[in-house]
Design a protein around this nucleic acid. Structure first.
Lengths: 233, 233
DNA sequence: ATTACTAATCGCCGAGTAA
DNA sequence: TTTACTCGGCGATTAGTAA
């Protein structure tokens, strides 16, 4: 019998030991946006470990795809990968929440027409039962898509690190349906939820569900600009 | 021959292993403001370690003065000490600076008369030479004291975690002069520096130096309200 | 000088268990 | 049940070097 599908997909295994310290040091020295020239000895000194240990961390980080090393025989040029920055940002957000409380975010976007996928997914009982239970309502069977551009897109990407309401993936009809995380939102003042699928590949469109058909309730049509307020839970 | 006095006093030894993870977990569960009842097994589960390892961490944290445990024989009530929160806040600030850049802070306070100590310290050559070299000017031999109250006092306390311009301690005339950290500031629009001595015991008065006598340059007198803008470097 | 391998050592983890 | 000790094992770290 397989394990229950209650696993929380987006909670990565916590990086162990001084891995984060090394990544943070490199980021502080600018390896997040430019290549940085450092010897393993220098890295070790700053973290408080031997040259050998520092070197092993650097090698391990490269193997895990968190660090790019271009070895110039003498010295190595180090730069962090986007995955490493994601890791650091998740860590940052964990601390931020401690001292600043749940995050909020306001952005604007334009209503876009989807491909009708939303209706298909939101008619799957596996999703409906979870939405009803965890959001407190049965969503209207269809999503409202909002296209986000430019700087706002980057900000909206931060929700990937937020804690929200989990919707678990499941198997049905011989295929797999992925999980997602939901965040309470107000669109033009109307309560709804942003749906952030686990398998998101940095799109410029975000999806919303609500108890009613948002296009009628707001009301809005394609290309109308809407204002969204998000709240971490 | 002793080591050069260039040591940076306020950089603590980095906590090792999963110490920070345990502290952060406890803070997330509310141990920062209330006592939290948790078994060592529960702590271990959440961090991903055994009951024994978690227990060792709890015992070690208590020994280091970071955690208060009131053992009720069956279960322990855990609460973090201010020192632990300081540690977490320092960690938070390190990450914050990565993603948000140097911190800024604006507050108001009232000009207060000091005890004339400022003049004494600022006439010590050991300080003067460092100020001249690292601040870029020879300060007027006297500090302007500003009294801060209420919520602003808490915010000003955050500079303890900032990175600033170091002034190192030294020995002279048979006594010890402590180090300090300086931060660029604007008081009522006039450039100056806030001096944060290493040995500060949460006072409600902060000291400023400038190239000229600030009381004349602004001008201000005792009990006048001044507005200060701080900038991390 | 570097990086990074090997060997010896250290220390942390988890199992077992006492109180 | 708890907390928390001892002990065996193994992964991590450092010293010594090779390249």
């Amino acid at each position: 019998m397989p394990a229950p599908a209650t696993s929380r997909e987006p909670s990565r295994p916590r990086p162990k030991g001084e891995t984060l310290a090394v990544l943070r040091l490199l980021a502080q020295l600018g390896a997040d946006h430019t290549a940085v020239v450092l010897t393993s000895r220098e890295v070790g000194e700053r973290i408080g470990m031997s040259q050998q240990a520092a070197d092993r961390y650097l090698v391990a980080l490269e193997k895990r795809g968190l660090l790019t090393r271009s070895m110039a025989q003498r010295r190595q040029r180090l730069s962090l990968t986007p995955a490493a920055l994601d890791l650091l940002r998740a860590e940052y957000h964990g601390y931020r929440r401690l001292f600043e409380g749940p995050a909020r975010l306001t952005f604007e976007g334009k209503v876009a027409s989807g491909l009708g996928e939303g209706r298909y997914y939101l008619s799957q009982p596996g999703y409906v039962v979870q939405f009803a239970e965890r959001l407190g309502y049965t969503p209207y069977p269809g999503t409202l898509n909002v296209r986000v551009e430019g700087e706002a897109l980057r900000r909206v990407g931060l929700v990937a690190h937020w804690t929200g309401i989990r919707i678990d993936g499941f198997q049905a009809s011989g295929r797999t349906f992925g999980g997602a995380t939901c965040f309470a939102a107000q669109m033009n003042g109307h309560a709804c939820h942003l749906i952030h699928p686990d398998r998101t590949h940095y799109k410029d469109v975000v999806e919303f569900v609500a108890a009613v058909r948002l296009r009628d309730a707001l009301p809005v049509r394609d290309d109308d600009t809407v204002s969204v307020e998000l709240q971490e839970s």
